[in-house]
Design a binder for these strands. Structure first.
Ligand code: FES
Ligand code: FES
Lengths: 130, 130
DNA sequence: GGTTAATGATACCACAATAGTATCATTTGT
DNA sequence: ACAAATGATACTATTGTGGTATCATTAACC
């Protein structure tokens, strides 16, 4: 059970760094500071640009800066970008959804745990981390 | 993020079924009822036997029955059998543990979420599900 | 205007975990 | 003896994660 993957982890750290420095930061600099493989970091930042978390600047002296306020960047938002839908799969039978679904006790309990986790991850934002 | 894998899911359902019927149940029967591939189900039950959750009976009319009380079978116990150590990896840099580890805010927050999840999973047992 | 330093887009590769199959040996009731 | 069950073990397939590699595009600077 891995709640946070490397993608997300690196993304969070990069965003934190950029958030602290409040300027355009290049991949090269992030790689130097965070010790992450460059092409991987690039891919991550490109995605954050596409998702409008960061804004990119091309050309010499280019790089990335925050596009939205650090208060508005929750951990769950970043997780969803890199890890897709955050949903604990309770009880699926192959591709068909279990017929008991409505009644199933296990599902309900797991669901409530999941809701808790998501609520907490939603509350943590970048501003709270830096 | 998958909290529960198929292994665990099938195992829980099998245990529930056996728990309800309170007798020796064969793989063939479980497969019929739960619609799970037979060899896979066998592998799962064999592991539960090894871990002393179930007790197996060989030979004709053989099968599996519970070895311990359903109250003592928590979800987390089954998860640990099939999914190994349940630990959210906060922030590792490659293989070295991050030097900030003690201070890192992210890690602390994630850790507390993890503790919650585990506490809740520990409280849910088979008796509560059936 | 050309060079250089940056990102954009995309395709590819490697590894590990999950999910499942296949086979043969062993036990036990009839 | 035979059939019906599990034990043990090795193998295969699929998917997700964690990357790499390459070429195109943009923009500052001389
Ligand atoms: S057994 Fe199907 S939803 Fe729980
Ligand atoms: S950055 Fe290393 S433990 Fe959080």
């Amino acid at each position: 059970m891995k709640l946070i993957t490397r993608n997300t982890d690196y993304a969070l750290r990069a965003i934190c760094y950029i958030s602290i420095h409040q300027r355009i930061v290049s991949v090269a600099e992030l790689v130097r500071v965070l010790g992450v493989p460059q092409p991987f970091m690039r891919k991550i930042l490109q995605k954050l640009n596409q998702q409008k978390i960061l804004q990119s600047f091309k050309g010499s002296n280019g790089g990335f800066k925050l596009k939205i306020s650090p208060h508005k960047i929750s951990i769950i938002k970043i997780m969803r970008i890199f890890q897709g839908r955050i949903g604990i799969n309770g009880c699926f039978l192959k591709k068909d959804i279990c017929p008991n679904r409505g009644k199933c006790v296990l599902r309900k309990k797991i669901q409530s745990i999941e809701d808790n986790v998501i609520r907490q991850l939603t509350q943590i934002n970048i501003a709270a981390l830096v």
